[in-house]
Amino acid sequence: MTSTAHSSDRLGYDPTAPLTPSGNLRRRLVVSRIAQGGAILAAILAVAALAVVTYDVIQQGASALSLGFLIHDPPQFGGAGGGIRSDILGTAMIVVLGALMATPIGILIAIYLTEFASPRSRLGNALRLGLDLMQGVPSIVVGIFVLGLIVDVQHKDSGFAGSVALAIIMLPLIARSTQEVLRLVPTALRDASDALGVERWRAILTVILPTAVGGILTGSILAIARAAGETAPLLVADSTFGPHLTFNWFGPMPNIPVSILTASEALNPAAYARAWGAALVLLAGILLANVGARLLLARSRRRITG
């Protein structure tokens, strides 16, 4: 010990010097600080982008928003006044029908992949590939597909065609998120059911699914919210609607996204005001669904993992 102290003494080591980095270490710490600052800045930028867009939409849309805006149809020949009742209900009907198609299929596929298919099963792997491919299809191409499949055959736009397109967008998202939640369910539950001689289907329906239901719901809500804002497929499959409310799924059905797009291209102030109001309604619905779904997820995660 003493000898090292001696040698440091000889090298000019001063034990009373303050313990601050100098030289190379100082430079390295500065570089590290700069990198940390950059990372924080990037995170602030992303949150700021969300805040700015949300603020602008609220600020522009709030003046258009009123009770009348929500419960009146748009005026027959454009112009000022009126509301977006038909758009809101139309979007709701299109999205609900799409969700009714996509959710059961998505959940069943997830059950198949996690509960039935072995990791090496051919059908399972093909299915995983298919889901990945489906998720990779750009939404406008989904619209083009529905155009060829339904609209051209029907010779007119329809809410039903829109629902099918949205279902195709939701399906891979729902299947994937359900798969992740089912994977979180402890194997011990499955083993215990097997040990008790419970048939597989009963174990799935009465043990595994109830444990995972919160997470499945979260994934489904997020997927449905994502699809509700999709414009491209509806522009292709369901855009030639009138201002009035309709309950006919097999005819053109009003919807919010396409109405926003049409009004934003109209270049007249009344249409702009209605577009901002509609944008606010749509954004509020989607962001609230997101927040709600995430809160639900946090709760159900705690429940599954204990």
Binding site: I105, L108, I109, Y112, F116, L123, A126, G130, I144, W201
Partner: peptide, 27 residues
């Protein structure tokens, strides 16, 4: 019961597979 649930799952998978192939075909 297992056969039914298994069958339903496979059916769902086949629908998804059909949609993927049909998208390619239509386009």
């Amino acid at each position: 019961g297992d056969a039914i649930l298994h069958g339903l799952c496979v059916l769902a998978g086949l629908i998804a597979g059909f949609v993927v192939v049909e998208i390619a075909y239509q386009v």
